[in-house]
Design a binder for these strands. Structure first.
Lengths: 331, 331
DNA sequence: CTGAAAGCGCTTACAG
DNA sequence: CTGAAAGCGCTTACAG
């Protein structure tokens, strides 16, 4: 029914294999032939059947995007759409498509992944998160499916792209110190996420460098990642008023904390947080400093890395790429 | 290299066609045979090649998800991730996957769509937006690709799922009236989006029903959809202080407006807005009323509708489904 | 630089 | 209820 490669071949007076080579833009075909074939493709409105291509070449021209286990926190965090925008941006430059992983439970998620990997529906994988002992990432590594993680995974035998969270934690803390703060608290979040502890490391470094004491009771690493968690943290802990600044590792938590600080009228407490993108205004008070993570770059670089990995797949030695995306202090 | 249907067939002592039927769970195969074949599939860790399936059956088992032209506003709006979560939820129940559309410019977007539709990579399409004279939707209709729009499209010859925006606009406005407000403004947003004008219709209805005058100067339908737009609207228009309430059609705009109202200390002005999901706390002040749009249902119902449409595709008459998802006033 | 031919791994009438 | 066979629309050594 649809136009096939044979139709094009016939009308152009060449063999189907030649048309195939034109589609692939093979250098072994003369420009003259290419021109002619392409014209016919246009006339006939020919589009190659992706399934046939995938079957014959075992290259499906699509990457899988692995979403984390569905939690409100993740989907609500601006990190997610921002990274996605970056991915989409890089995809447009190629002919590749993105397939979303599906599944609610851990088991469903793994099953779906197996289906699309073993089923040759994807050539590579982008993990939108890094967490400890992730069975999906383990699977990808075992079967040797080219993968790149957004975030910092525990294993170093993986490609990944991330912010330099230690440096950013350091920058954020130093900013507060420079502004005159001396009693600075640190509020983490989901400890499963490595970036939390890296930012903490930077926080400690900045304190030490400025001869400020690192106190365990100033570090709040409870398990939380929603605005309400941050809100409650302030509302239920009067001791917070003794601090003069807070580094808040998670943006949503920061929103809740700021609201609570407002209500408590503790305006002597400075805060700084990390944001997926450059704010115009959003929920930040004018003059509120923050660290711009440039998360969209995480997405677009991840795609680029995956292409590189696949290109290099023939080389004998295993080599892994990791890249740190620049962030910046916005004041 | 990988395990194929022939390997399974050989080991199970049946024909490949039988294995194929077992995979499809065809009712014409005896339970006994199914059991045996399935066991072998497990032993061999067999997964069907999706490309081959797609080529032979021209059913790719994947839907395309059409993202709107990349604007910050869309990606930052909680609507997007919330709907996506709903889609993901409904997908898990089936064996289908979601392919993301790509492309920055309108032209790239259309080209990518053609590639995946003509290339038989998708069986159906979910449009994550409804806008006027959308060339992508037009294309889908012309080629008869099963589609469902999230939002209300201009043409009625499309399947779609949406909130009942007129009713919700009415509910929101009536709430303000019941609270004692008499001079109520309406702030729209991107007029290209139909839901904006539907909510306006509901607003007008509520006013009339309560013998309140509908004044043109109380209706702000400028082109805006970012927090900063809302912020500026308040900051630059002192006349706003003459209102005692505002219905705000867009959540991001509402955030900016509330911040500006705060700064102006115009605490006599009530606001109500529409939110993609049920808030725990987020950026809303405690006690702030809003309309919960249940956007995740938009996503999950869209998927369900698409399955129905495809199932019915054989029927002679063209029939279109549209469904209105319930929202609720949260006070 | 181009073509003929085999093959990728399935599905599906058709026949029994 | 099951099998043999044709075919889906490409790609890619191989030969020239």
């Amino acid at each position: 029914m649809a136009i096939t490669i044979r139709d094009v071949a016939k009308k152009a007076g060449v063999a189907p294999s030649t048309v195939s080579r034109v589609v692939a833009n093979s250098p072994s075909i003369s420009e003259k032939t290419k021109k002619k074939v392409r014209q016919v493709m246009d006339e006939l409105n020919y589009y190659p059947n992706v399934n046939a291509q995938g079957l014959a070449s075992s290259r499906s021209k699509t990457f899988g995007l692995i979403l984390p286990p569905a939690t409100d926190a993740f989907y609500q965090n601006p990190f997610f759409p921002t990274v996605l925008r970056g991915i989409n941006y890089s995809m447009s430059k190629n002919d590749y498509s993105i397939l979303l992983s599906a599944g609610q439970t851990q088991e469903q998620r793994l099953n779906h992944l197996k289906k699309i990997v073993y089923g040759k529906q994807v050539e590579g994988l982008i993990f939108l998160y890094a967490s400890k002992e992730d069975p999906l990432l383990t699977f990808a590594q075992e079967v040797g499916c080219p993968s790149v993680v957004i975030g910092t995974p525990e294993s170093t035998k993986v490609n990944f792209v991330d912010n330099d969270n230690e440096t950013l934690g350091y920058l954020a803390t130093r900013y507060l110190i420079n502004e005159g703060s001396k009693k600075i608290a640190y509020v983490g979040g989901d400890i499963e996420q490595f970036f939390i502890s890296d930012r903490l490391t930077g926080y400690k470094k900045a304190l030490k460098e400025n001869n400020l004491e690192v106190k365990e009771e100033a570090i709040f690493n409870d398990f939380m990642f929603l605005p309400l968690d941050g809100y409650d943290l302030i509302m239920n802990n009067n001791q917070f008023k003794n601090f003069d600044a807070i580094v808040i590792a998670d943006e949503l938590v920061a929103n809740g904390m700021r609201q609570a600080l407002n209500e408590k009228k503790w305006s002597h407490i400075r805060t700084i947080s990390f944001s997926a993108y450059k704010h115009l205004l959003d929920n930040l008070m004018p003059g509120q400093a923050y660290v711009n993570l440039n998360s969209h770059l995480l997405g677009s670089r991840a795609v680029d890395i995956l292409f590189d990995v696949i290109k290099e797949a023939n080389s004998k030695n295993k080599r892994f790429m990791n890249e740190y995306v620049e962030g910046e202090l916005v004041t």
